[in-house]
Design a binder for these strands. Structure first.
Length: 476
RNA sequence: GCAUGGGUGGCAGAGUAGCUAUGCAGCGGACUGCAAAUCCGCGGACCUGGGUGCAAAUCCCGGCCUGUGCUCCA
């Protein structure tokens, strides 16, 4: 089955064909680092991380670019409040971003361009748009003129210029002071008193929001590239603006072959947002659960669907994750990994997994297959079938680990097992002694005493389970 | 209002025409002094009204509900 992906512009799943055989250029709009990253950022980063992992494992050479908008009104305002340089605010949040992404097992992109390091390219692009008469300078900045290319309007949203002219329920009527038309958007904003600025042919100022992505994608991926991604809330106006800028500047279309957009995070059925107060930072979430449990939660729905996020979902994912990791760890400690292609069962689950991923990166289908292999592995562990244990472990290592990124590296899993074993042996004498007492109590049908000992052990962090062959214990 | 998605069992969430999705939860059973774990089994769904088909959750038309966008936003 060949890869098909949903293209926002065509509003349909399309067969994936790259501009250059075997190579993929992908640009994803990144964050504006004015505050610590939230789980929406995590959702997006993980979604595209998995997309890139899948493309690479499908044999493509991928060039994955995602940017930082390290100058904007909010950053400036926070910097002013704190009386620090605006880059201090941006850098501290970018550091936070990299730290949490690493915890979430998000592999680094190939480049992280920043607006403040792309100013010459942005200026050059604006100049070209002025020359081609798609843009004009005015009293407070340089604007893109929508009426210079009206046919490009609504390529992603399906709205026509006429429709929007009706007015968005009367709300979008305000025309920026220097704009000819209220739908024109800023390419360059002149600096007001006390704002950071760069020199330009039109005056001191800074780039508008949209032009950076056109400039950076051009710089890193060229005049045409395969995939442009971002959150679905960027479709309008940001990505439509990019289409105007890039296509008018480069004078060809389409610049982007496939537009893909991830869905938002919902809390109580509504989009997570600061104004609603239903806001989770990544650090909030990983203070409650392991980062990979959060990752599991965020790929439980296919990337285009909204993810319903709350404590229940999070706990649900935690238990799924623990099931996965404990079976995998146990298998890993029992045998070496061996190829799984000889197992009929694993071969067919692998096919299902691939079909799911090839169908617009359906991680939900992929997870179902992972769950079924976890179940299979547990069975094989019970049966002591080392061939199938080895094969299942390596199946999981590839599918759940390399592709979905849900497994820590093997060393740390083994480490953790060893630590637990060490902790276990440190207290085994005392535990065994107590268990012996408990067994005597049970033989005498002294249930009260037996339960006392069990809860005593429980307080020590030891879980006792009575099996037909006598009591089994483990550390919580 | 306009645009664009979606409405599947208690929850999450696959499935675009015919065959058990799956997981969690629930129920019943095995095993248990009890509990836990494990195993076996079970039930339960396709918003609504029409239409096309031998056959529709799946295609077509209408209605209702709902998310998102139209303003900074991943």
């Amino acid at each position: 089955m060949t890869l098909r992906l949903y293209d926002t512009r065509s509003r349909a799943k399309r067969k994936f064909r790259t501009l250059v055989e075997g190579e993929v250029g992908i640009y994803v709009c990144g964050i504006t680092p004015y505050s610590p990253s939230h789980i929406g950022h995590a959702r997006q980063a993980i979604a595209f991380d998995i997309i890139v992992r899948w493309l690479r494992n499908s044999g493509y050479k991928v060039n994955y670019i995602t940017n930082f908008t390290d100058i904007d009104d909010k950053i400036i305002s926070i910097a002013n409040d704190e009386k620090v340089h605006f880059l201090e605010v941006a850098n501290r949040n970018i550091d936070d971003y990299f730290e949490v992404m690493d915890l979430l097992n998000v592999l680094p992109a190939d480049a992280y361009p920043r607006v403040t390091e792309t100013i010459p390219e942005i200026i050059s692009m604006i100049s070209r748009l002025i020359v081609s008469e798609n843009a004009y300078a005015s009293s407070d900045g340089v604007y893109f003129e929508i009426n210079s290319a009206p046919e490009k309007y609504g390529q992603l949203t399906g709205q026509t210029l006429e429709m929007v002219q009706e007015g968005a329920g009367g709300r979008v009527t305000e025309t920026g002071s220097g704009k000819k038309n209220h739908r024109d958007f800023a390419l360059w904003k002149f600096a007001k008193e006390g704002e950071p600025y760069w020199d330009s042919p039109w005056g001191k100022g800074r780039p508008g929001w949209h032009i950076e992505c056109s400039a950076m994608s051009l710089e890193y991926l060229g005049e045409k590239f395969d995939i442009h991604g971002g959150g679905s809330d960027l479709i309008f106006p940001h990505h439509e603006a990019e289409i105007f800028q890039s296509e008018c500047c480069l004078n060809h279309e389409p610049v982007v072959q496939y537009w893909i957009h991830n869905g938002m995070i919902n809390v109580d059925g509504e989009k997570m947002s600061k104004s609603l107060g239903n806001f989770w930072t990544i650090r909030d979430a990983i203070s409650k659960v392991h980062p990979l449990e959060l990752r599991y939660c965020l790929i439980n729905a296919p990337y285009r669907q909204p993810v319903e996020f709350n404590d229940v979902m999070l706990e649900d994912s935690s238990s799924h994750y623990r099931r996965l990791i404990s079976a995998y760890g146990e298998g890993l400690s029992l045998c070496e990994k061996k190829p799984w292609e000889n197992s009929e069962f694993l071969k067919s689950t692998s096919t299902n997994f691939s079909n799911g991923m090839n169908d617009d990166f359906n991680t939900r289908v992929a997870i179902v297959e992972v769950q079924s292999v976890v179940k299979y592995l547990k069975e094989k562990i019970d049966e002591n079938n080392s061939e199938e244990i080895s094969a299942s472990v390596s199946w999981l290592s590839y599918h759940a680990g390399s592709i979905l990124g849900l497994l820590p590296n093997d060393e740390s899993i083994i480490d953790e097992i060893n630590q637990k074993n060490a902790a276990k042996s440190a207290i085994s004498d005392i535990v065994n002694d107590l268990l012996k007492q408990r067994t005597i109590a049970r033989d005498n049908k002294n249930w009260q005493r037996a339960d006392e000992i069990r809860s005593e052990l429980n307080e020590m962090g030891v879980i006792v389970e009575d099996s037909p062959d006598g009591p089994i214990w483990r550390i919580k």
